[in-house]
Amino acid sequence: MAIHDPHGIIVGNIEALYHPTPETLPFWEGCSHGQLWLPQCCECRTVLHPFDSTCSVCLGPTRKWIQASGDGRMITWVIYRRLYNPAFTLPYVVALIALSEGPHIISNLVDCSEATIKAGMPVRIVFDQLTDRIVLPRFRPHSILLEADTYDHSRQIL
């Protein structure tokens, strides 16, 4: 399947790395609609990581999905300078991001020069359509979003 990564990180087949399950499907379906959805525990109302199938706070059996803001802050990051998988191109940034709603998630930081990355930096989600079925949530510095919004929003279906 043809890959068109608007941020040029992925250049090869990543189908083997994309495996939505019945329990994570709402997250991935949300991404394909340009929306960030997170699970929330129906018992204690903790907002959970998108791939959490259970609530580790109260062990409540059921979750519901809520729409999240897509805003967050950088906790930490690494810059890959050696390839682990031929589907990717170097360098790229993998970041741990604290979402405003609470959960911390792994994603890519894009549209940011390496020298300006800082812990605590505000970031906002972007949705990159890679293939017909894969839309990946990534993050960019929020200030760039405000000052010079060059991102192609036509990719998003809001």
């Binding site: 990180i9 992925i10 990543i14 790395l17 994309y18 495996h19 994570t24 791939f51 930490t76 990051w77 690494v78 890959y80 682990y84 998988n85 990717f88 790229y92 993998v94 741990l96 792994i106 994603s107 890519n108 894969i134 990946l136 990534r138």
Partner: peptide, 16 residues
Amino acid sequence: TDGIFGWFGTPAAYAM
């Protein structure tokens, strides 16, 4: 499940 973000390997996790 985060391999799709290029998140591979033990060194990267400790590098974080």
